[in-house]
Amino acid sequence: MATTSTADPTRRDMLYIATGAASAVAIGAVAWPFISQMNPDASTLALSSTELDISAIPEGQIVTIKWRGKPVFVRHRTKKEIKEAEDVPLAQLPDPQTDQARVKKPEWLVVVGVCTHLGCIPLGHQGPFDGWFCPCHGSAYDTSGRIRQGPAPRNLEVPDYAFLTDTKIKIG
């Protein structure tokens, strides 16, 4: 058995490197399914859209619906609220965005109801800007759902949505 003692050292090193590399590949390949299994599964991904009939929402009211486990605010804005949102100079905004860029029809504002600070749900028609006010840490949003005051870094997120008809929207 003891005949390979004079084996060429380069060939021996190659063998060690190849074995080590193959073992590393094996560990990496095994790790992936264990990581990937925590991502949303196929049934969760399939449930990505929600439809809402908006004909029954009176002017000035906010309706909250659940989409992907989160609240979505659908706000039927009054003329005054629209005007307030449109008249704000961009320079006053921590996260500058025009109101037009955030709505498809001016009367209807659709935003994800999750404070961009740490995930609480802001209260509607409250706070200094009459938009939303987050009770957790005092972030205040305006009638376009934009951050105006407080620790939140960004405006309320606008989800993907579309008007299927004049009275029906599909979120997601």
Partner: peptide
């Protein structure tokens, strides 16, 4: 069955 069908790599696990 949900693990076998929908979870990523669930069938293998």
């Amino acid at each position: 069955e949900h693990i076998m069908r929908d979870v990523n790599w669930g069938w293998m696990l």
